[in-house]
């Protein structure tokens, strides 16, 4: 058929493929941009840490600056919502002054929902 040849012509095919790619990507973004960052905090032995403070640092042109903090629940889980960022750092601190390493977060788009690998406090 003629339309098939038209469709497979490179001037039609390449822009169409690009449009589908961009469209698909944007569709994915629409369904995954609630800005939810969640994960758990554990200690060195792997047990969940309740009541630890998790701090989110936002990159501010050159350095990282504290933006938000939250406290883990009984299961050691924390959850940030509505984070309009694409780059930042996470750190967990316990009441007795121990802290985890800072974890760099890089997202593929602003406000991407992400499950962070456990933060370990030693």
């Amino acid at each position: 058929m003629n339309w098939r040849r038209v469709l497979l012509h490179r001037f039609v095919f390449v822009p169409l493929a690009l449009a589908i790619l961009v469209g698909g990507w944007n569709l994915y973004i629409v369904y995954n941009d609630d800005g939810i960052i969640q994960g758990v905090v554990r200690d060195g032995s792997g047990a969940a840490l309740a009541g630890a403070t998790v701090i989110f640092f936002e990159r501010n042109s050159a350095y990282f600056e504290e933006r938000k903090r939250t406290i883990t629940d009984a299961k050691g889980a924390y959850r940030f919502t509505d984070m309009q960022i694409h780059i930042g750092q996470l750190e967990a601190r316990t009441a007795d002054g121990r802290q985890s390493q800072r974890r760099l977060l890089r997202l593929w788009f602003r406000a991407q929902n992400i499950d962070v690998a456990p933060l370990i406090v030693r």
Binding site: H86, I87, R106, L107, W108, F109, R110
Partner: peptide, 11 residues
């Protein structure tokens, strides 16, 4: 290597 430079520049 990573592609995050592209994300950074986009924003």
């Amino acid at each position: 290597p990573h592609l995050f430079n592209y994300v950074d520049v986009w924003y």
